[in-house]
């Protein structure tokens, strides 16, 4: 594997009134081309700031220090990097048809005609396993369920054939059943197309199922990074161990005694 991007001594601060608050400080991380990297952290850990820094979406008020070196030059968002956010109802345009939203990226970045781009959009909608892709091209976001909208958002992110897909809490607004479906869809897509996946989540179990490596963030700092197996089964840091301890799954013993 070769490095896709080298992040060295990255620091990001935001202004909060008169103070400056660090959202990331002294982060060193190499992301390999073609890997699936899970980024774990609680709210305020800086995990989403990292996604914004990688995509160049940081607000102008943010102060950045350190370096982000891409192996193949600065990628263009939408063409080289696809992005999926937590809330598909705010990332999709409510008055634009599904077909146009998915085709838009292919028109803008691949130079396809609208006709050819719509063809591609239909194929993409089929790839994200949405029923009746032909009919969907003319549908609008409000006609779909949350899970279906998130599949549309994934199709739109994939439209220009990006090398990197960043999913920022892309499944946390979904119920567990739909979440499992969307995760398996992402897994299949990136495997099949050799895309680098950066999967940002607060759920360490979810990341451990999907990612090759896991990076744990806390209070703007990178706490530890390692293979998913190492981080989950032999955490080096107490914080990671605490996160694992707080995790609940069906193997966790119940907190309550027998029924009264």
């Amino acid at each position: 594997m070769s490095a896709l991007v080298n992040i060295s001594n990255l620091g990001v601060t935001f202004r909060d009134g008169p103070r400056r608050v660090a959202a990331l400080s002294d982060v060193n991380l190499t992301i390999e081309a073609g890997e699936r990297l899970g980024i774990i952290g609680e709210s305020g850990s800086g995990k989403s700031t990292l996604a914004l820094a990688l995509t160049g979406l940081l607000p102008a008020s943010a102060e950045v220090s350190g370096r982000i070196d891409w192996a193949d030059g600065q990628p263009i968002l939408g063409r080289d990097i696809g992005m999926v956010f937590q809330d598909p109802s705010s990332s999709l345009d409510p008055v634009m048809s599904i077909g146009e939203q998915v085709a838009e990226g292919a028109v803008a970045h691949l130079g396809l005609s609208w006709g050819a781009a719509k063809e591609r959009a239909r194929d993409l909608l089929a790839q994200v396993k949405l029923p009746d892709p032909d009919g969907l091209l003319r549908a609008f976001p409000h006609q779909l369920s949350g899970g279906q909208r998130q599949r549309v958002a994934i199709a739109a992110a994939m439209a220009a054939g990006p090398r990197v897909l960043i999913a920022d809490e892309a499944t946390s607004a979904l119920d567990t059943i739909v979440q499992a479906e969307v995760v398996s869809l992402l897994d299949g897509l990136v495997k099949q197309q050799g895309i680098t996946l950066i999967f940002i989540t607060h759920d360490i179990a979810l990341a451990s199922q999907l990612a090759d490596r896991i990076a744990v963030f806390r209070h703007a700092q990178l706490v530890e990074v390692g293979t998913a197996r190492q981080v989950v089964t032999q955490p080096r840091e107490a914080y990671t161990a605490a996160l694992l301890g707080a995790h609940l799954d069906l193997g966790t013993p119940p907190l309550i005694g027998v029924a009264p």
């Binding site: 199922q209 998913a228 197996r229 694992l244 799954d249």
Partner: peptide
């Protein structure tokens, strides 16, 4: 489906 969908931590 609800039981199957619960994310499980990777085991050793």
């Amino acid at each position: 489906a609800l039981v199957a969908a619960v994310p499980r931590l990777l085991q050793a």
